[in-house]
């Protein structure tokens, strides 16, 4: 029972505390508090991992059996990405957006329900676990690319307006954000592609070549198409740096909406 009540409450408490710390840091830079916030961030991730492990043990499947669980799992992956990037560079301002997103995903997860009483049967298979984990990881990476794209746009606005405010000094350099954005796009695309391929393989192997039950094919195909377009545009530099940043923000939003549609389709779309 604690897995569904106490742990979510603890996670919300930790993430709420982290958000308060980073908002304070935005107004009052303090290296000591930043180090503390960094450690609390890792502790929160560890607690998150413990919670999801207990949940996995409890239901004998990774947390993908309800829309709420998938939402929470995506939050975990986004936070893990965020901390891994933060190890490489200081990016005080770019912590707040992922933090707010993780909190919203946690709240959506709790509201959407974490109990797995009537989960579709195929979600209990190893195939679907692989497919969903890869999809979520890919979406988390593409979400990250959207954050860096937004960061580039914010920094450009500061540079152009000559405001030289707190944002100007606390955002990473344009170069760093560009590199991170490109890495997140390529890696996210790769994960989504493998996930898509694994799903197709699953569809044929489990149903003797009859792709009849694959309920969220359109959303998944749209998602892969959007990620591919983004990756191609980044790889072949179809656009200038700022236009690419805008495209990334737009596409990552579309991808986020598509994955939400996908998840809803699995659980509430009738045929599953």
């Amino acid at each position: 029972m604690l897995t569904y009540t106490l742990f979510p409450a603890i996670m919300l408490l930790f993430f709420g505390g982290l958000l308060a710390m980073w908002v304070t840091l935005y107004h009052k830079p303090d290296e000591l508090l930043e180090r503390i916030a960094d450690r609390v961030g890792w502790t929160t991730l560890a607690l998150f991992a413990v919670w999801l492990s207990i949940l996995t043990y409890d239901q004998r499947q990774i947390p993908i059996l309800t829309a709420g669980q998938i939402s929470v799992f995506l939050g975990f992956l986004i936070w893990m990405d965020q901390l891994l990037v933060q190890r490489k560079m200081s990016q005080r301002m770019l912590v707040i957006l992922p933090l707010v997103t993780v909190i919203l995903l946690l709240l959506a997860g709790i509201a959407g329900g974490l109990h797995h009483k009537s989960a579709p049967d195929e979600l209990h298979s190893a195939w679907s676990a692989v497919h969903i984990v890869l999809s979520m990881a890919g979406v988390a990476m593409l979400f990250g690319s959207g954050v860096y794209g937004a960061g580039s746009m914010l920094l450009r606005r500061e540079l152009m307006s000559r405001k030289f405010g707190r944002l100007f000094s606390s955002l990473p350099s344009m170069d760093e954000m560009h590199k991170l954005r490109a890495f997140a796009i390529y890696f996210g695309w790769l994960l989504i592609t493998i996930s898509f391929a694994s799903a197709v393989a699953f569809m044929f192997l489990e149903n003797s070549g009859t792709p009849s039950f694959f309920s969220h094919l359109h959303e998944m195909f749209g998602l892969w198409g959007a990620a591919s377009l983004l990756a191609l545009s980044e790889r072949f530099r179809w656009l200038g740096d700022q236009k690419q940043a805008r495209l990334t923000v737009a596409m990552s939003t579309v991808i986020f909406l598509l994955i939400t549609g996908s998840v809803l389709q699995i659980f509430f779309g009738g045929q599953s």
């Binding site: 955002l171 350099s173 170069d175 760093e176």
Partner: peptide, 9 residues
Amino acid sequence: EIAQRLYNK
């Protein structure tokens, strides 16, 4: 400082 806001290295 402005140059470093654009370029890391």
